[in-house]
Design a protein around this nucleic acid. Structure first.
Lengths: 338, 338
DNA sequence: AAATAGTTTGACAGCGTTGTCATTTGTTTG
DNA sequence: CAAACAAATGACAACGCTGTCAAACTATTT
C-alpha cells in the first residue's frame, strides 16, 4: 500500500542505500542517478518513514518549543513562525508549556528531553534568560536557540535578540515630544530581561532630553492587566502626578486604561498611555494603544532557522555562532495623541 | 548510557518480550513478574524508544490537533487541554493550523496525514463541522474526535457537543430580565454551527417571553472585533433602536462596545452588550462583559480522552460511540447591569 | 595497456521495539 | 498421579531505514 524505500529502489533500478543518499542530500551521487531516484519517488509518492529514520540514524527530526508565557497571542505567533520553518526543513514541532517558577522545572525538562527525543529546542523568555536552564541544557548536550532581550552580541549559543532598549527609548521620546515631562514607568516581572531593558531605554530617553527620573514614578509590577490596574490606582494618589505612563507591555497598558476610567481620567487628555508588543487587543481598547510592534512570527521563524543551522553543525568547541536582532517599531495610536 | 529494554530484561531476569508486555499493559503476566519488571524499569529510569515502538508496532503514539481559528486564547486552551490528556496516555501532540477556506484544504490534510503518521485527530469548528473534511477522514480511515456546536445526539463519530443553544437562551433571558425587549443579535460566520445554534437560542428566548423577533435586528457578520464595530455603527442608525445586543462572541461584543463609545452611547445605560466565550479580554474591557463561559481546556481534555478510547477500540462497524456535552455558563458582568 | 587514484554504488548488519508462535510452567480433572 | 488444558514466558523474525565498509566503476597517469 504505502511505498517503502525498497519499492523506490526497485523502480529506479538502484540499491536502497542510494535512494537513502538522494533523500538525505548526501554528496557523491551522480546527477543522472539522482534524477532517476527523484522520478521514482514522485511516481510512488514515497514518504520516508520517520520512525525508521530516527531509529536507524539515531536522530529525531523533531524540535521542541518550551515556553512559560501567559500571553496567548505571543505563543501562537511563535508556534506558527516555528512551524513555518519546520515545514521547510521537514521537521516536526513538539510544544511543551512549563511553569518556570516550579521547583521541579529542571527535572521536568530533563524528563521531557529524555522521553521525547527532540534534537533541539527553541526557548523564549523567561526561560531563555534563566541561566539554570541554559546551563542544564548545555550540560545535557541538547542544542537550543534563545529569543532574548538585549542588543546583538556574541554569546556561546545562537540567539535572536530583541532590542527592547532602543524601542523603549523611542516610545519615551515620543511621549516627551507630545509635551510630557512627567512620565511614569510600569514594570513587568524582573525575571524578564525585557523589563530591565525597557527601563533602561526609558531612562536613556529621559536623560537625553534632560529630564529627571524619579523613583516614585517607577512602579514594580508584572506583565498583567491586574498589575496595570493596581499601579494605575496608585498613580493617581501621587501629588504631582505624571501625565503619561509607559507600560512595559500592552496588558499592563490596558489595565492602566481601565484604572484611568475608574478614576474618571480621560485618556489621553488627562493621562497618556503607551504599551509594548502590539498585541491585537491594543487595537481594540478605547482609545487604541500606542505601542511598539515586534514581528513575533518572523522572530520565531528566524529562531527556528538558526536552530536548524546549528543542528547541522558538527559539535565542535570553536565555531562562529550566528545571531540576529530585531528592533520593535513604534506604532502611534490614540492613547498618546494630544 | 541510555537504558534499553534489554537492560531492563537482564536486570529483571526475564525476556525482553515480557518487559514489553508489562510496559504495554498487556494481559497474561503474573503480578510477581510485573513487580520485578517495574522495579527494574524505575531503577534504570528506562524510557521506551518511541521510534522503535512505532516502527515495530506500526502505530504512532502521536495525535494531531488540526484547527483554523483566529482566536489565540481558544487555541492555546485547546492545546493545553489536549496536552494534559496526552501526557497521561504517553502520546505526543502535533499541531497543525490550516486555512479552512483554502481550495487545497483536503489535499493538504491528506499530505499531512501521510507524512506525520498521526494515529488520530482532534478537530474544532469550523473544520469539525465541514462534511467534506469528516468524509475524507472517514474514508482515509483516520480516527478523529470533533468538538461541535449542538445538543448531545448519537452520531457515527465521537463528539464533544457544546450546547450553545441553551446558553444563548440563558443570555437572552438575562437581557430580557434586565428589562430589555428590543434585543439585537450580532452573528458570527455562518460556517460555524455555533452561529446558528446561538441564534436559535436567542429566538427561543424571545418566543418564550412573547417578544417579537425582527429581521432588521439580526445582523450578519463574523467572529471579529471589526464586525462588531461595523454592526454597532449600523445599529445606531435604526429608528426604534434596540437597547441591548447579544453578540455571538466576545470579540464582536468588544467591537460593539467600541462602536458604542464612538457614537457616545453609554454601556450599559444606553446599550447593554453581552458576549459569548469568556475570553480573558472580556474582563479587561470597560465595562466588563457579560458572557457565557465555556471550559475550553476541559473540553479539550475530554475530546482527547474520547479519542484515546476510540483509538483503542477495534475497527468494527457496529459499536457504541461515546459522546459528551458541555453547557456554557452565564457570567453576568457590568456590560448588562442596570 | 597497466597501474593508480578517485568517484560512485551496493551488501549487509544493526537500531530498539512488537508480533507470532513455540515452549515452559502451573492447575485442574478423572 | 498422569493426562489434559490453560496460563505465562521466551526465541526469533520482522519493521524501514542509516552507517560502515567493501566492490565496482571512471578517469588519470605512466
Amino acid at each position: 500500500m504505502k511505498a517503502t524505500i525498497n519499492d523506490v529502489a526497485k523502480l529506479a533500478g538502484v540499491s536502497i542505500k542510494t535512494v537513502s543518499r538522494v533523500i538525505n542530500n548526501e554528496p557523491g551521487v551522480r546527477q543522472n542517478t539522482i534524477d532517476k531516484v527523484t522520478a521514482a519517488v514522485t511516481e510512488l509518492n514515497y514518504q520516508p518513514n520517520q520512525s525508521a529514520r530516527s531509529l536507524a540514524g539515531n536522530k529525531s527530526y523533531v524540535v521542541g518549543f518550551v515556553y512559560d508565557n501567559p500571553n496567548a497571542y505571543y505563543i501562537i505567533d511563535m508556534q506558527h513562525g516555528i512551524l513555518d520553518a519546520c515545514k521547510k526543513h521537514h521537521f516536526e514541532l513538539l510544544i511543551h508549556p512549563v511553569d518556570s517558577k516550579s521547583d521541579n522545572l529542571l527535572n521536568e525538562l530533563k524528563d521531557m528531553l529524555r522521553q521525547s527525543r527532540v534534537s533541539g529546542l527553541v526557548l523564549t523568555p523567561p526561560l531563555s534568560e534563566m541561566t539554570e536552564v541554559t546551563d542544564m541544557l548545555t550540560e545535557t548536550g541538547v542544542k537550543f536557540v534563545r529569543v532574548i532581550s538585549g542588543k546583538n552580541q556574541t554569546l556561546s549559543t545562537p540567539c535572536v535578540f530583541i532590542d527592547d532598549r532602543t524601542a523603549a527609548f523611542n516610545i519615551t521620546k515620543h511621549l516627551i515630544e507630545q509635551g510630557h515631562n512627567k512620565i511614569a514607568f510600569f514594570s513587568g516581572e524582573e525575571v524578564h530581561h525585557s523589563t530591565g531593558e525597557r527601563l533602561a531605554g526609558y531612562l536613556d530617553a529621559l536623560k537625553a532630553h534632560n529630564l529627571d527620573s524619579r523613583d516614585e514614578w517607577i512602579f514594580a509590577g508584572e506583565y498583567s492587566f491586574e498589575s496595570g490596574v493596581e499601579n494605575g490606582k496608585k498613580l493617581v494618589e501621587l501629588t504631582d502626578r505624571p501625565t503619561a505612563v509607559f507600560a512595559c507591555n500592552d496588558e499592563i497598558a490596558a489595565g492602566t486604561l481601565f484604572a484611568a476610567r475608574l478614576q474618571g481620567l480621560d485618556v489621553p487628555a488627562d493621562l497618556a498611555i503607551a504599551g509594548f508588543e502590539d498585541n491585537p487587543f491594543s487595537r481594540q481598547t478605547w482609545p487604541k494603544l500606542t505601542t511598539a510592534a515586534q514581528p513575533t512570527k518572523t522572530i520565531a521563524s528566524q529562531a527556528a532557522e538558526l536552530l536548524f543551522k546549528h543542528l547541522r553543525l558538527p559539535a565542535k568547541k570553536e565555531q562562529v555562532i550566528e545571531n540576529c536582532m530585531f528592533e520593535p517599531e513604534l506604532v502611534v495610536r490614540e492613547s498618546t495623541k494630544p
